[in-house]
């Protein structure tokens, strides 16, 4: 049963991920990316980490991708016509990097199977709300606070960039119109 669902959601994730890259229409890519996030959330549920799954859906599918789709809709991006890629040298580089990535994944898989360490129990409490909460506010308090300050800085920075036109109305707005 578990194997069946693993194959189902894994195949969904890979299929959607391929579609993200292969689609020419940016909106279709965005929809495929949402599919990737939702299949990943299903995989997290199967790993007994419901909190991470819920957060995955809320943050990625529910917030970030909504903004991405929003921007695509607002800009009304046209379908990109097929043309020969200008940066030709990137193609072999990409293939080489993908090869390195696959080799790394294979190495990890092999070394995991060879290692003698057995998992302590089949059900862990890593992904539960309580364990994540207590870990965040005790052991990892400093990284947590630094991350929130970083996010606050990003918000303030975005505000400053967006307000620049409003602060200097004359010249900047005429620049913006073109």
């Amino acid at each position: 049963m578990l194997v069946f669902f693993f194959i189902l959601f894994g195949a969904m994730a890979i299929g959607c991920a391929l579609a993200v890259v292969a689609q020419r229409n940016p909106l279709y890519s965005a929809i495929s990316l949402i599919g990737v996030f939702i299949s990943l959330a299903c995989l997290y549920v199967m790993l007994a980490a419901p909190f991470i799954a819920a957060v995955q859906v809320i943050v990625y599918a529910g917030a970030i991708m909504v903004l991405v789709v929003f921007v695509i809709m607002l800009l009304n991006v046209e379908e990109e016509e097929r043309r020969r890629p200008r940066l030709r040298f990137l193609v072999p580089a990409a293939i080489a990097l993908a090869g390195v990535l696959i080799a790394e994944a294979a190495f990890i898989l092999v070394s995991v199977q060879e290692s003698r360490v057995v998992p302590t129990s089949s059900t862990s409490d890593v992904g539960l709300t309580q364990s994540i909460g207590s870990a965040l506010f005790t052991q990892y308090l400093l990284p947590f606070e630094i991350t929130s300050i970083l996010l606050l800085m990003a918000i303030v920075g975005a505000m400053t960039l967006a307000r620049r036109g409003a602060l200097l109305p004359g010249r900047d707005q005429s620049k913006r119109s073109d």
Binding site: I34, I38, A54, V57, I58, G62, V66, V69
Partner: peptide
């Protein structure tokens, strides 16, 4: 989470 997906 499900409600936020409904926006799509």
């Amino acid at each position: 989470g499900i409600t936020s997906v409904g926006v799509y």
